[in-house]
């Protein structure tokens, strides 16, 4: 495993920790989209169907378990924890899941590497992950007073994808037969969706002001 890939995974892990920290310490999920979190839980379930059938490494299995466990616990906190759930901006978080899930499923049935259940679910998870951030970005745009942890969480999530792209470029040049068009294009789309956010993130960082996306 190369350093870019490891950095990508660690950034992803830290983003989840930041979010859980926010939920745990201040007992608040204000500004966090439950829709996006539910989509991530679905992404991990569909992608890690091979967790018990294809052993890759201990690292790989543990990370999969962590991402599955944390994504479901975040959803649980936001839906059922008696204090946390009160801070959920339900009226603002109105993005419809099926607008994203259905097209991704259809696309996965049409464009995949192999027409098998596991492969289609894996492809579906890639397409869905690419767009799963959209409800969160919409909510961010609507929220007037976004706290710093929420902004850092979204930034880390975007940084993870950007690092994965660098990892793919590295692997393409160093590994023979390393060619994954579906993964690359989905990952690229996902990172592009962050473009606007990154732009305003750096602007707010440069000018030392709170981040606010223009309506």
């Amino acid at each position: 495993m190369n350093i870019l890939r490891l950095a990508g995974d660690m950034t992803h892990l830290i983003s989840v920790i930041v979010l859980l920290l926010k939920i745990h310490s201040i007992k608040s999920c204000a500004g966090i989209s439950l829709k996006t979190q539910e989509l991530y839980a679905l992404v991990f379930v569909s992608r890690y169907l091979n967790i018990f059938t294809d052993f890759i490494s201990l690292y790989n299995t543990i990370m999969k378990l962590i991402f599955l466990g944390t994504s479901f616990s975040i959803v649980w906190y936001m839906r059922y924890h008696k204090i946390v759930r009160r801070s959920y901006d339900k009226d603002q978080d109105t993005f419809r899941h099926y607008f994203l899930v259905l097209p991704c499923l259809i696309l996965a049935l049409l464009i995949n590497e192999r027409f098998t259940f596991k492969e289609i679910m894996w492809t579906f998870s890639l397409y869905l992950e690419a767009v799963a951030i959209l409800p969160q970005l919409v909510l961010l745009q609507r929220t007037k007073n976004t706290d710093n942890l929420t902004v850092q969480y979204i930034f880390l999530l975007g940084a993870y994808r950007a690092l994965y792209i660098l990892n793919w470029i590295y692997r393409y040049f160093t590994e023979p037969d390393y060619l994954h068009w579906i993964t690359w294009i989905s990952g690229l789309v996902q990172t592009i969706l962050y473009g606007d956010f990154f732009y305003y993130y750096f602007l707010s960082w440069k000018n030392n002001v709170k981040l606010q996306l223009p309506a």
Binding site: M1, H12, N60, M63, F67, R114, Y164, D177, T183
Partner: peptide, 10 residues
Amino acid sequence: NPTRKPKDEL
């Protein structure tokens, strides 16, 4: 595609 490597990315 006979030489399919297992998917090692997360």
